[in-house]
Simulated assay, not measured.
Amino acid sequence: VFKESESLTDKSILARHRRPPKRCQSSSDSVEFSSFEEFYRQQYMESLEIAKFILYAANNSLDDSNDYFQSIMDFCYGDIDVEKLKVKALMIVDLFQSAIKTNQMNIKQIAKISTVCEIFNSCEVGKEMFKGYHKLIKLYLTIPVTTATAERTFSTLNRLKTAIRSTMTQSRLKHCLLPHIYKEKLDKIDPRQIVSKFISSNEKRQHFFGLIL
C-alpha cells in the first residue's frame, strides 16, 4: 500500500535550513538534516524519549545521573525546569503507587501514558505537587502526529468562502463549514429523529406537524 501511494503525491522535500533569530537560539548547536526522512525520524524519536521518561519515572526512582534528564533538557529546552524534575523524581513514584492502591487499580506496572493521565486526573493534589511532570505530559500529548487534518480544514474553507460568498457572516460560515468537514458523521444521522425532536419540543409544532410524528 505504501509503495502504491508514493505515485499519488509529490515526494516530500526538506525545507531550506534557516538560521533562527538570536533571541530564539538555544545553547545547543542547530542540526542540519540531509533528508526529510532523517528530519521526521528525529522528531519522532525525540517525542518517544518523552514517553519513555514519563513511564520510567512512574515506575522507577530516578537519580540526577539518569540519561533521561538530558534528553528532556534537549527536547524541552526553556519549557520544562529540569532541576525541579530531578528534585521530585524520587517522590512521584510514591504518588503513583498510592493512587493505584487508593483507586484499586489492578496494575502491576504502568505501561501506558493514558494510565498516567488517568492517575493525574484522579488526584488533583498530584497535579499541584508535580507541575513539571504534569506539564511534560501535556506537551507530549499536544505533539501532532500529522497536520493533514488541519490542512484539510483550510482547504474546505477555501472551497466554501469564495469571492461570490464574500459577504457571508461568520455564523453562517461556521454552520456551513462544520457539516462539510464532518459529512461522514452526518450521513449516519437519521433526519427523522431530528425532525421528531424538533416537533415534540413545542405544543404548537405538534399541532401543526402532527402527521409527521
Rank of each mutant, 00 (worst) to 15 (best):
Y182H: 06
I137R: 08
C76E: 11
S98F: 09
V125Q: 15
I107W: 03
S47V: 02
E37C: 05
K185S: 14
P179A: 03
F53P: 01
E203C: 00
L213C: 07
D29K: 10
D29Y: 05
T153K: 08
S27L: 14
Q42L: 05
Y44K: 07
A111C: 14
D29F: 06
F130D: 08
L136R: 00
C24A: 13
H180D: 07
F209K: 04
N106I: 08
N103W: 04
F69E: 03
S61C: 13
Q170R: 07
S7P: 00
A148N: 03
M45K: 09
D64I: 05
L177Y: 05
F198C: 05
A148G: 02
K88A: 10
Y140P: 00
L62S: 05
Y68H: 11
N60Y: 15
I113R: 04
S47F: 01
I110M: 01
T167M: 10
S27G: 10
T149A: 14
K11S: 12
E4K: 06
N103P: 02
Q70C: 05
K84A: 11
L211Y: 13
D67G: 12
L178R: 04
K88V: 08
K22M: 09
D63W: 08
I119M: 11
E6K: 10
E124W: 05
N60Q: 13
K86V: 02
C117R: 11
V1D: 13
Y182L: 06
R23D: 14
C176A: 15
P179E: 04
K131E: 15
T146Q: 02
I72Y: 01
I13P: 02
E184D: 15
K131Q: 15
I181D: 00
Y140N: 04
F154D: 06
I199C: 02
H180P: 00
L55N: 03
S98A: 14
F96N: 04
I54W: 00
E37A: 05
I137F: 13
A99W: 04
L173N: 04
E32Q: 10
L95P: 01
F198K: 05
I100Y: 02
I92L: 02
G132Q: 10
S30W: 08
I212A: 13
A99L: 07
R16T: 15
M91W: 12
L14N: 01
S155F: 08
E37N: 07
F2D: 09
T153A: 14
Q25H: 09
I194C: 06
S28N: 10
R205F: 06
A51F: 04
A15G: 13
N202A: 03
I181T: 00
S28G: 09
K204R: 11
K52G: 04
I50G: 00
D81W: 06
S30R: 11
V31P: 02
S30M: 12
T115D: 07
A148F: 01
R19I: 15
Q109S: 07
S7Y: 09
Q206G: 11
E4T: 05
Y56D: 02
F154K: 06
S35C: 09
T9W: 08
K88D: 14
I164R: 12
L141F: 06
L136N: 00
P21T: 09
M129S: 13
T167F: 12
E38F: 01
D81C: 11
A111R: 13
Q97C: 08
I92A: 01
